[in-house]
Nucleic acid binder design. Structure first.
Ligand SMILES: [Zn+2]
Ligand SMILES: [Zn+2]
Ligand SMILES: [Zn+2]
Ligand SMILES: [Zn+2]
Lengths: 140, 140
DNA sequence: AGAATTACTGAGAACAAGTCTCAATAAGGC
DNA sequence: GCCTTATTGAGACTTGTTCTCAGTAATTCT
């Protein structure tokens, strides 16, 4: 479930193509993101990777984001989350409990369909983010 | 276009019902939110209201949010935005230019329809947030 | 392989947004 | 007006993120 060999390889290739070096710290950040299926914050990554500096974590995320390999997700919490972008375009959105902060990913075909029909004059649309808010079972 | 007497009155009433006092600083925050049709950040409010302390602005926003009178919107920028919630339920979502940060509100009936059909076991859904990302005309 | 070049790195300073503390103030009830 | 208690503003503090810079390591050159 939670390994993503294709994304890991794909990312390594894109990183190389972009003229970036294959450094160990950056690869550790990539590997951690590869094995996560949903959002992780920069500080969580930093805490989990001993010996990798905070600045390096933020820089790696920024580079991956610029290459479209990682997407930022905003879940109302103080810190942003980041998750890998599958080359297939397959993705999910999030439901968050406004009481305890629990986050659950979900997918909905009709929603995607509706979003892809939206057009806006003067804007080329490229991505989208949907967050549903509510209360989980434990918090009621 | 940009005045909202109904929301202002409605908010005043809800504030009173909640047992909160009618203080001038809080009312000034409410009035500012009332005249804005799209997201404002807490620091923008603070900067615009001379004589009202930052803490008071954040507290007022928090209370309004708790009462469901104001909604937080996350537009990728460093600071969160806040906008009034119309008692009618009428609302909009946002398109943001990833280059210059420009934000445009939009409404889409089919999108709302799709969202209202989503059900999630173990979650009572209450609100939603949709953000489309792309590039505006000037940034291409 | 070794040297030269230059991207990359970690530590920590700096910064920005948001929260907390507390003594002073102002609402609302009597 | 007086009492009680919510509310306030200033500023200290915390948290998340960016910047700086001297040292390190990946790649290229010879
Ligand atoms: Zn996710
Ligand atoms: Zn989607
Ligand atoms: Zn808006
Ligand atoms: Zn909607």
């Amino acid at each position: 479930m939670s390994q993503s060999p294709s994304w890991s390889e794909y990312s390594a290739r894109r990183i190389a193509e972009a003229g970036l070096r294959r450094s160990i710290p950056r690869r550790r950040v990539i590997d951690l993101l590869a094995e996560r299926d949903c959002a992780v914050t920069a500080l969580e990554i930093d805490a989990e990777l001993d010996g990798v500096g905070r600045a390096t974590v933020y820089r790696a995320i920024e580079q991956l984001e610029d290459l479209g390999l990682v997407r930022k997700v905003d879940l109302g919490a103080s810190a942003h989350g980041y998750e890998k972008v599958e080359p297939s375009g397959h993705h999910h959105h999030h439901i968050v409990c406004d009481d305890c902060g629990k986050v659950e990913p979900f997918e909905d075909e009709a929603l995607e369909e509706a979003i892809h029909h939206i057009r806006r004059k003067g804007f080329s649309l490229e991505s989208h983010e949907v967050t549903l808010h509510g209360h989980c079972a434990e918090c009621r």
